[in-house]
């Protein structure tokens, strides 16, 4: 009995080098006694090998003979163009830079390590003095592919099945967003990718054009408090006590400061179109901040706090 690695390698070599698609009978014949003789045992062993090769990323093509003596027979081969990594000639320093980047953002990733090896880079270092944790979501790889290939996708979001032309992906404020054109709504929409329900699938053949100059950063206001704002941006005036004033000003920018009080407190004008985001920001100050106006925003905050205080 041949070692399994040896048999897998020989099968891979055979399917890569063959000039024409091969049936299982031909494969077993060429590989001499490596597959069992019995028909069903042979089929089972071959299916297992085929699955193993596909699992490690080998694209195995198959066709069914349409007519003639062997009509209905399945034949297999590997298209070298689809098998090999091509068109990516990295210089050593470039491969090493990607290795450092991976160590700084996905230090423990086995798929990241695999990718680096394919590029000719080395083992992934596990610590970096300066790093960023990238949230990992299973939907991201297929969404990226769809964005690059300009193919529409379908997925569930807020209990509704969506069909979307994916224009771009954005990581901001620790969350991944998809920006795209929603077919049913006929307009551009932004989706939080972690809120996508179920699988994302590409809709074969449904390609699209992306608007010129598109940038996902423009689709999403940098400040979550502005999400939903149209032209006139509504603002609320908020008083912030002296101990927190400097940090608030650094965060908001000097331009938002409306009044400076003698005791060091400041009044700032802050966008409040996205009320939940505004409220969340405000509550971060606890009793060191207070909405002065407008009255409806002030009342909303009071009602919100009362629901917790009772």
């Amino acid at each position: 009995m041949t070692d399994r690695v040896e048999r897998l390698t020989n099968l891979l070599a055979l399917l890569l080098e063959t000039r024409e698609p091969l049936s299982l009978v031909q494969i077993a014949g060429q590989m001499e006694s490596q597959y069992p003789d019995g028909q069903s045992a042979r089929r089972a062993a071959f299916e297992r090998d085929k699955a193993a090769l596909r699992d490690i990323g080998v694209p195995i093509e198959q066709e069914i003979v349409p007519g003639g003596e062997y009509a209905g027979q399945t034949r297999y081969w590997i298209d070298r163009g689809r098998y090999e990594l091509r068109g990516l000639e990295l210089d050593d320093d470039e491969a090493r830079a990607l290795q450092v980047a991976m160590a700084a953002t996905r230090p423990g990733s086995t798929s990241g390590q695999e990718a680096l090896w394919k590029l000719g880079a080395g083992a992934l270092d596990r610590s970096a003095a300066i790093s960023a944790v990238l949230p990992d979501l299973p939907e991201l790889p297929v969404l990226r592919e769809a964005v690059a290939q300009r193919v529409a996708v379908t997925f569930g979001y807020r209990d509704v099945a969506r069909e979307v032309d994916p224009w771009g992906l954005l990581l901001r404020d620790g969350f991944w967003y998809l920006v795209g054109f929603d077919h049913a709504r006929g307009e551009r929409r932004t989706y939080r990718i972690d809120r996508i329900e179920g699988e994302v699938s590409m809709i074969a053949g449904r390609t699209f054009e992306r608007p010129d100059g598109f940038d996902p950063r423009d689709a999403l206001p940098a400040d979550p408090k502005q999400i939903g704002a149209v032209d006139e941006v509504p603002t609320a005036r908020v008083r912030i006590d002296a101990p927190r004033a400097a940090a608030a000003e650094a965060d908001l920018g000097e331009a938002r400061v409306a009044i400076r009080h003698p005791d060091g407190a400041i009044d700032v004008d802050v966008p409040c179109a996205n009320l939940p985001a505004f409220r969340s920001w405000l509550i971060g100050f606890l009793e060191h901040a207070e909405v002065i106006e407008p009255a409806d925003v002030r009342d909303h905050v009071i009602a919100w706090l009362e629901s917790v205080a009772s």
Binding site: R86, A101, R106, G120
Partner: peptide, 20 residues
């Protein structure tokens, strides 16, 4: 030549590089 990158590997490389 090495095997092509699968979609997960492709995404991870690109996202890591852009983040770095």
């Amino acid at each position: 030549r090495p095997l092509r990158l699968n979609s997960v590997e492709a995404f991870e490389l690109l996202a890591s590089g852009r983040a770095a």
